[in-house]
């Protein structure tokens, strides 16, 4: 089995992110940008994909797991994590022209790479914790003309080029069959990602990371014009200070309910 996993390095969920004044090419036309605390991790939902790929390899044997990521050079750290977990080959796509990419252009260029590899299975997280777009997986499938199943919580590779999949839907799950090759996006619950062994980590630290750019993929900047752009950043609206209900029970509960009915008008 040839398995390709698409991953992304994202800010740690605990990282402080604020809107700031920032000029230059990465700022928007308002002269705004983001200040992101320097703590980055492999996107959680992509980690599930890497783990799933390695489990398939361990189960079926004779498989290669290739992990590819689009990002700045620091994203190499996340690729090393994938190697430590057991990936065979990792590739970084790094090009200044990709600074303002949106999901459409990211999917387009990843598809360009995948086209030449002819994998059986393509895995990625259902969502990245930075843009939360849930778009790249199905978009890659569309560019490749392949079927896809999103938010999967179980994947069984059968014979004759089919997969049996469980996917999460609102209030339940669907059991689906899908022809291979296909794209699957992974959801929490599919597996528990392994913690790499020290031997894996050491191997990953020594590994040379393949790096490619648009030219390697046979693309130029005009091919990867985004369809959407960010006009403005906002801090989330801050709520006014909390109203702590004073008094004793049960009276303060009566007060709370009254406020919810008459002031907030939600009941």
């Amino acid at each position: 089995m040839k398995i390709i996993v698409l991953v992304k390095q994202v800010p740690d969920p605990e990282a402080v992110i604020t809107v700031s004044a920032k000029g230059g090419p990465t700022g928007n036309s308002d002269g705004q940008g983001l200040e992101i605390e320097n703590k980055y991790v492999l996107n959680f939902f992509d980690q599930l994909s890497v783990e799933e790929a390695i489990r398939i390899k361990e189960k079926l044997g004779l498989s290669i797991v290739t992990v590819i990521s689009l990002g700045p050079r620091r994203a190499v750290e996340s690729l090393r994590t994938c190697l430590a977990m057991g990936a065979d080959r990792v590739i970084l796509v790094n090009d200044p022209a990709l600074e303002n990419s949106d999901a459409y252009t990211i999917a387009k260029l990843l598809a360009q790479f995948i086209k030449k590899e002819l994998p059986d299975i393509i895995l990625c997280g259902k969502e990245s914790m930075d843009d939360n777009a849930c778009q790249v997986g199905p978009a890659v499938a569309e560019f490749l003309g392949l079927p896809h199943v999103s938010t999967i919580i179980k994947l069984e590779i059968g014979n004759n080029k089919t997969a049996l999949v469980e996917r999460q839907i609102e209030g339940g799950k669907e059991i689906v069959t899908c022809s291979l090759p296909a794209v699957f996006t992974t959801q929490k619950g599919i597996n528990e990602p392994r913690i790499p062994l020290v031997t894996g980590v050491m191997k990953a630290m020594r590994a040379k990371i393949e790096e490619i750019n648009l030219a390697t993929l046979g693309l130029n900047a005009a091919d990867v014009e985004p369809k959407t752009r960010i006009l403005k950043y906002y801090q989330p609206p801050k709520r006014p200070k909390v109203k702590i209900i004073e008094g004793e029970l049960p009276d303060k509960i009566k007060t709370l309910i009254k406020l919810l009915r008459e002031e907030a008008k939600v009941i």
Partner: peptide, 11 residues
């Protein structure tokens, strides 16, 4: 974006 830490206007 970023899970709601920041909001953006998209054009």
């Amino acid at each position: 974006i970023y899970g709601g830490k920041v909001f953006v206007d998209i054009a």
